[in-house]
């Protein structure tokens, strides 16, 4: 029967989930369970929690996330290029330098605008 490598990945996924859940299940069976009001409180250094927890975060996090997505997509382009490079030659290198230059220009713009500075 012909199957795929990724059958193993599926099995490994199940194993990993099982490996994570089995001790949790065991804990549920044997560990003590005594609920109390104080125990269920949010732990913020013993001080009563104050104000809203799920607050709005600064835009900076979002900009970093955007840059991450852009560069992550870039790497997805780079991998096939790197694999195929040996069979192609100089034209491939020129193309990739152009591609990298474009991306670097984006990075330089972000840098010049000062968004790479964490405040």
């Amino acid at each position: 029967m012909v199957a795929y490598n990724y059958v193993f990945v599926g099995l490994l996924l199940l194993t990993a989930i099982g490996f994570a859940l089995a001790p949790l299940a065991l804990v549920a069976l044997i560990a003590p369970r005594k609920r109390s009001l104080a125990k269920g409180d949010t732990y913020e250094c013993g001080v009563k929690t104050h104000g809203e927890t799920w607050v709005r975060f600064r835009i900076q996090y979002y900009i970093y996330a955007i840059m991450f997505v852009v560069f992550d997509v870039e790497t997805v382009f780079l991998y096939p290029w790197a694999v195929a490079y040996g069979g192609l030659g100089t034209f491939a290198l020129v193309e990739m330098v152009v591609f990298l230059a474009l991306l670097s220009a984006g990075l330089a713009y972000a840098w010049a605008k000062g968004v790479l500075r964490w405040v």
Binding site: E74, V98, F99, L102, L107, K113
Partner: peptide, 20 residues
């Protein structure tokens, strides 16, 4: 391929320009 690179750069520049 190159257009994709340009698009990515445009996305980055756009995001920075909008959010900064």
């Amino acid at each position: 391929f190159e257009l994709a690179g340009l698009l990515l750069t445009a996305a980055l520049v756009g995001a920075v320009a909008l959010a900064h």
